[in-house]
């Protein structure tokens, strides 16, 4: 069953605040062999940790009709207003921007706004999710 077109424009509740620690950034950098030392800005894809939680909330919502195991990550983009650093407290708020059906798949365009403890925008993470219902 395709995802309801009424999903477009819907904004989901913000994720629980995520405290960025040096330990977490180091683990992320080390897993990908990225040079990083304490005090450096986090790698550019680190915000996915917070954005992923927002995407989980979308997929876990029973009214949306997305089956987690049928979702493939199609595209990802980040726009950084400033680098993420250890000590940041980040929250992500996801909005469904676009939805189209192609060959039985739902192509869901999402945008997650990551804000800091002051409410300032730090990063916009856009993900395209490809959902093949009943595949």
């Amino acid at each position: 069953m395709p995802v309801d077109a009424g999903l477009v424009g819907r904004t989901f509740p913000p994720t629980e605040p995520y405290d960025v620690t040096a330990h977490a950034v180091r683990a992320f950098a080390e897993a990908t062999g990225t040079p990083w030392t304490d005090g450096d800005p986090a790698p550019a894809t680190f915000p996915i940790v917070v954005a992923f939680a927002a995407m989980q909330a979308l997929m876990d919502d029973p009214t949306v009709g997305i089956e987690l195991h049928h979702v493939v990550h199609g595209e990802q983009r980040f726009v950084h207003e400033r680098p993420v650093v250890a000590g940041d407290r980040l929250t992500a708020e996801l909005t469904v921007e676009t939805l189209r059906q192609v060959g039985g798949a739902d192509i869901i365009g999402t945008s997650s706004a990551l804000t800091d403890a002051d409410g300032a925008l730090v990063c916009t993470a856009r993900a395209t999710l490809v959902h093949k219902a009943g595949a």
Binding site: T32, T34, P43, A44, E75, Q76, R77, F78, P83
Partner: peptide, 23 residues
Amino acid sequence: ALAARYVDEWAGRSGRIVELGAK
């Protein structure tokens, strides 16, 4: 993340990337 690593290694530090994306 490897693509970002490549850019950081070339730049000599992290934090210079303002936009990054791919399919």
